[in-house]
Design a protein around this nucleic acid. Structure first.
Length: 339
DNA sequence: AGCTCTTCCTGAAAGC
DNA sequence: TGCTTTCAGGAAGAGC
């Protein structure tokens, strides 16, 4: 599942292949099957494919970047006519891609057929920066579960900002915020750490994997209330989030489900996970079995010994009274929260 | 206002 | 063996 390190890896792998190239055409396989506004794309796109096509066709890719988990592709119209009367056709614009759970944005040889879940195919023209990139004639967006989002913003010429920022609710990334500011923000929130780390308006870029891994490294229980952290704990969490993300980026991300970067390469950080999806396995630090609980509807993995903390009473009720004893290792299926 | 829960979606894996 | 159920999760929106 693409979180900040995976998205950063996609961006880095695509940038040298895309910058400087033009978008000649946008092909949308579902249009042929299901008409001009296919139901399967209603959530993925915020307007009919024809509108997106109109906005990307005949543009040059000026930059490829990232904000949080959002990929940002800056487009400049080729025929910039300084038309004062109707500025929008010539205005720079930004293609935003969020990969959701299973989204993939990959460069492909022109001959590669679209997979069953390829929703968008951008046909590239112009000369890539390097000769070896020339064989990539297509940019595919595929997404099995269709939790991803693709949208386009046209940057207002009147605006001083270089790019449209439809992401105003997005919080700072862990690497872009000072420890003191991070601690101050934590003190203001009376919610569980795990839920808070997943909240993109609090910090952006962390998802389920790196939230769990950050809490483990900081030695903090996922159900701990943010405002109750001691200053040293807040600092530790800030540092661990930065370190985990940095290391994961260096490893090319974590390939858990079917994640690959823009050139189809897997990441390797999953072999360094301490807790994520290691339920029942021994903690790398103390050998205590890793536990899994559900927090805010998300599976949450932690080491009960390395991440001590009192679980609020209301959250403990889980099993039927009869089973209320045993230390016989609890299984990991969702309990009380169900239904 | 601030949280938490539910919904969307498919395919792999578990359950029967 | 084969059908059914469960589970995974980002983020919007509903509900409390």
């Amino acid at each position: 599942m693409p979180e900040l390190p995976e998205v950063e890896s996609v961006v880095r792998s695509l940038r040298p292949l895309l910058v400087g190239r033009t978008i000649e055409e946008l092909m949308v396989p579902a249009e042929r099957r299901a008409g001009e506004w296919p139901a399967t794309l209603r959530r993925l796109l915020d307007s009919p494919p024809a509108r997106l096509r109109e906005q990307v066709r005949g543009t040059r890719i000026a930059a490829v970047g990232r904000i949080g988990k959002n990929i940002q592709i800056s487009l400049v119209p080729l025929a910039a006519t300084g038309d004062a009367e109707n500025a929008s056709p010539a205005a720079p614009r930004t293609l935003w891609v969020h990969l959701g759970m299973t989204g993939r944005l990959t460069s492909e040889d022109s001959e590669v057929p679209a997979s069953k879940h390829t929703h968008l195919i951008f046909v590239l023209g112009g000369a890539p920066a390097t000769a070896s990139a020339a064989r990539f004639g297509w940019l595919h967006f595929a997404d099995i579960r269709r939790f991803g989002r693709v949208r386009l913003t046209v940057d207002s010429p009147a605006s001083a900002a270089p790019h449209g920022r439809p992401l105003s609710k997005l919080g700072p990334e862990p690497m872009d915020i000072a420890a003191e500011e991070f601690a101050r923000r934590l003190r203001a929130r009376r919610t569980r750490l795990k839920a808070l780390l997943l909240d993109q308006s609090f910090v952006s870029g962390l998802g389920n994997i790196y939230a769990d891994e950050s809490l483990f490294r900081a030695g903090l229980h996922p159900l701990k209330i943010a405002a109750t952290l001691k200053p040293a704990q807040a600092t530790a969490l800030h540092a661990s989030a930065q370190t985990v993300l940095r290391e994961a980026i260096a490893a090319g991300g974590s390939s858990i489900s079917d994640y690959v970067d823009g050139q189809g390469r897997q990441g390797w950080f999953q072999i360094h996970h301490n807790v994520y999806q290691r339920t029942g396995e021994p903690c790398h630090s103390c050998a205590t079995p890793i536990r899994k609980i559900v927090v805010g509807g998300r599976s949450t993995h932690f080491c009960p010994r390395c991440q001590p903390g009192r679980v609020p009473r209301v959250l403990k009720r889980a099993t039927k009274p009869r089973a209320a004893q045993s230390a016989v290792k609890r299984d990991s299926r969702p309990k009380g929260a169900r239904r």
